[in-house]
């Protein structure tokens, strides 16, 4: 099976779900308010959305903003850590790839600035 959100009706924390909708490469994806973009994507059964240098698929690894595996473009903002950014209704998310000649290589991240 796959990642999913605990059903609100049976959730021990007693929560309210307010739906929101984002688009991912133009396709609508439904989530609930308060989720991170990574949470929305995972719960919609998208385990991977970024491609590494070899083209290998990547999604969430560390979940707390350390590994940068889950980077996406949100609107005009490139390289947003999906695990740290709360989704907002209407967010336009574009996936990124570091593969040379990959489908979306316009999103090749700029080289990190801190190494000489």
């Amino acid at each position: 099976m796959s990642p999913r959100r605990v059903r609100a009706e049976s959730d021990a924390v007693g929560r309210q779900d307010r739906p929101l909708r984002i688009t991912v490469d133009g396709e609508p994806v439904d989530g609930v308010e308060g989720q991170t973009l990574a949470g929305v994507l995972l719960a919609a059964d998208r385990l991977a959305w970024r491609r590494g240098r070899s083209g290998a698929p990547r999604g969430v690894f560390c979940g707390i903003g350390v590994c940068f595996d889950c980077l996406v473009t949100v609107g005009e903002d490139r390289d947003v850590r999906a695990c740290r950014r709360r989704a907002r209704d209407g967010d336009e998310v574009t996936t990124q790839s570091r593969a040379p000649g990959g489908l979306v290589d316009r999103n090749e991240p700029t080289p990190p600035p801190t190494e000489k």
């Binding site: 959100r5 959730d11 949470g39 995972l42 969430v60 690894f61 560390c62 979940g63």
Partner: peptide, 19 residues
Amino acid sequence: FTAGAAQALAKGERVVVGD
């Protein structure tokens, strides 16, 4: 996933990483 990711997703937004 790192164990921390699974924990953060479950505890922080009620997403379970797998079955």
